[in-house]
Nucleic acid binder design. Structure first.
Lengths: 184, 184
DNA sequence: AAGATACTGTAGCACTCGCTACAATTTATA
DNA sequence: TATAAATTGTAGCGAGTGCTACAGTATCTT
């Protein structure tokens, strides 16, 4: 691996953290260079252009998240209520909340047809639904719809309540009760 | 009302449409001036600064939305399933989808503590939950939580499926069935 | 050792951003 | 009509944007 490639991955890893805690706003090349101990000139040596840099960082974040989610979920299939509560618990107390917030930023840009965000958002959404769908103990016919419903419910809490996710506890509890009664 | 105030309200009305269809990205002063047939210089004569301009436009959009929602909802109380389907129908086929997308943009900025978006988002969220809560035929104890749940579910569909809301139909149908069985 | 290749610093371009100084003109008031 | 006040145009500031031209140095290959 060339020195260039090594530096690339270092930079991606560093910026992943910054993107997670600061979103997509504070991302001028000179600022990102400062954060990684280099110059804007060098960033554009390691990466073709800013879009490629951002895309690479977001891809890294996405992969990291997929790993985290797999660890949290465990092997066995979960009932709908269990899946919901597992997801909510992770969002509430883990770094997963940062991922959701970042996903919100991406989604906001993607909504306007903005590339590369549109592509990235589509990929992430598909991946999440597939992941959630795969772990659900539920009739195949409606499994994907339920997976989307559960994910959307949690995403929606972040939209509504932002940093104060505790406000969403009651709503999630209600939803969990419904799922439990219907599919114990 | 002074000429200044008249022009202010005209501009606000015009820009409301632009914000709804284009979000908060394409909002340079020179661009907004072009859209309203004036100059950046004059925009800063009508408004104290850009933040005040944007806030005024967003407040106008919010008020307009509240009016629309009241019209759509009608007078009588609705069962949870009815409320969900009414909301979803409006989001699917009306201009309400634009409002939701704009709310997503605001929420994305608000998430990072960015003013004035943080304040605006909080107000909008509170208003919506109160509105939905007021129309729900449901025991008072859990009414707000259910209102938040329904709103979050619809918001979440926009986050997940963006412009192609048809993808959310199945999830909403599932949710509606659950609500119907539990609270007919 | 010579030449090719990989890497990096300096400086700046062409552009957009929100905003302002200043002067001119129109409109209202005395 | 004289004076004050409200309204508008011109021109540009200072800071930021992504990106590039060019030259220099380090590292590797023959």
């Amino acid at each position: 691996m060339s020195k260039k490639d090594i530096r690339r991955t270092e930079i991606i890893a560093t910026l992943a953290g910054h993107f997670l805690s600061n979103g997509l706003a504070d991302t001028g090349l000179r600022r990102l260079a400062e954060l990684t101990g280099t110059s804007d000139r060098m960033l554009l040596y390691y990466f073709d252009n800013k879009d490629e840099l951002v895309s690479a960082v977001l891809a890294h974040v996405g992969a990291e998240l997929a790993q985290t989610l797999n660890d949290v979920a465990g092997p066995g299939p979960l009932s709908p209520a269990q899946a919901l509560e597992m997801l909510w618990r992770t969002a509430r107390q883990g770094e997963f909340a940062d991922h959701l917030r970042l996903f919100l930023d991406i989604s906001s840009l993607a909504n306007r047809g903005n590339e590369p965000y549109r592509t990235i958002a589509t990929q992430l959404t598909g991946g999440w639904i597939a992941w959630m769908s795969a772990m659900l103990d539920y009739p195949e016919h409606d499994r994907e719809a339920l997976a989307a419903l559960i994910l959307a419910t949690v995403d929606g809490q972040v939209v509504l309540f932002q940093n104060d996710l505790a406000q969403g506890d009651a709503a999630i509890a209600q939803f969990s009760k419904m799922l439990q009664e219907r599919h114990p």
